[in-house]
Design a protein around this nucleic acid. Structure first.
Lengths: 224, 224
DNA sequence: TAGATTGTTAATCGATTAACAATC
DNA sequence: TAGATTGTTAATCGATTAACAATC
């Protein structure tokens, strides 16, 4: 691996769109790697994801110099670098708050564990659920939030509670020292800027599909 | 309700960002309505969602003239208009393909039914699942996809199958005449441009949260 | 009327794409 | 070397915000 490299862009955080694409690049690179491919050019990587080659190079260049002119990118090297950049070169213990249908599904979901995210603590406000076990873990009362988050060194929480409860629980999470919230509740959360939020709003997304379906009438192929 | 109005912007489809925000406006307006509020200004609506007031006006103006200078927007009127624009002034029957953990959770999820989306048919490729019942519906083989989609007049599908199977199932859906796919499989699907796709990539989103948490260190309040 | 607020134009900001010298 | 491909600058495109005449 080449080293030292020129430093990334002054440590400004990357634009959201860049981070999202880098995640896609990483997954595609892992797929190439599993096929035994060793190097890839920006145009090959872009073609697999329907992304312009200049965009691929610019996105990667945001974080440093990873490519070799005339050759492309060495896949193993780039995978290592992108994992470190995204922060998934380590395990992230997660707290899951809300064991309704969605919460229980997220608990069983494989996609997270594969990428180093591990749900290690469960919380719910329903007295019928507190004390019961899911996937080998006991559901705890929200009263113990701060205690458990500190003890287990948890920095991220998955929030799958009803909209009405979401802001109150978010406040408790913030008070407990959480650093990031993965929000599935269909409402915007207000938190200090020191706490990161990524929201997945399934109703908004499905409404978007309804809109597109109503308006789209095309013919050319498309990657989506 | 004022009528006739000036026509929307030449029927170009709205930019994605606009559609997403309109969905948020609609939900916020419904919340205001349930509080008994009758009119709202662009700055009030924007404040509730941390969106600039000029942005709110511009987004709405894309679809027509809904406001009253000096007054704002009449909430019931705007709700009706936005529902029609998004295409959720009617019922959408959905097919659900893939009854793994995520699929079963989506089946039980209330957020969809509330907005007029109703899962009316279940499909899986696993012979152990075919024939069994979930929520009063029998899981069918993918062989019957085209037949059921036509019979039940289904235009949207929720795809929650493993990445390896996703493209193949998408091809079957397209061949069966589906118009839109809500894709939870962690890979891009290739479909004709006449078919709409909205993708929810949970791993990508969670990786984004990891990145933000790693890089964020702020202090000012923020709505997310 | 005076005050409030829209719809829209112009100004700004940011993101994407094209082009190409530098490099392997 | 000749061909390929990067990193980066400049050009383009699109989205957001500011400003304000028109309107209620």
């Amino acid at each position: 691996m080449r080293d030292p490299r020129r430093e990334p862009s002054g440590d400004r955080p990357a634009p959201n769109a860049v981070v999202g694409r880098v995640s896609l690049y990483l997954r595609q690179l892992e797929s190439f790697q599993s096929q035994g491919i060793l190097t890839v050019s920006s145009s090959q990587l872009g073609a697999a994801l329907a992304i312009n080659d200049a965009q691929v190079r610019k996105d990667l260049a945001f974080f440093g110099q990873f490519g070799y002119p005339g050759i492309g990118y060495r896949i193993d090297e780039l995978i290592t670098a992108l994992q470190r950049i995204l922060g998934i070169d380590r395990e992230w213990p997660l707290a899951l708050i809300g064991l309704g249908n969605l919460g229980r599904a997220l608990l069983k979901y494989r996609g997270f564990r594969n990428r180093g995210f591990r749900i290690v603590a469960l919380f719910d406000s329903d007295p019928h659920k507190i004390g019961s076990d899911f996937e080998g873990m006991t559901v705890r009362s929200l009263d113990t939030l701060a205690e458990v988050i500190v003890q287990q060194n948890i920095s991220l929480a998955v929030l799958s509670v009803p909209a009405e409860a979401a802001q109150h629980v978010a406040d408790q999470l913030v008070a407990s020292g959480i650093l990031g919230i993965f929000n599935f509740a269909p409402m915007p959360l207000i938190v200090p800027a020191s706490v990161s939020i990524v929201a997945v709003d399934l109703s908004v997304q499905l409404e978007h599909l309804a809109y597109k379906t109503q308006t789209t009438r095309g013919g050319i192929s498309f990657v989506g």
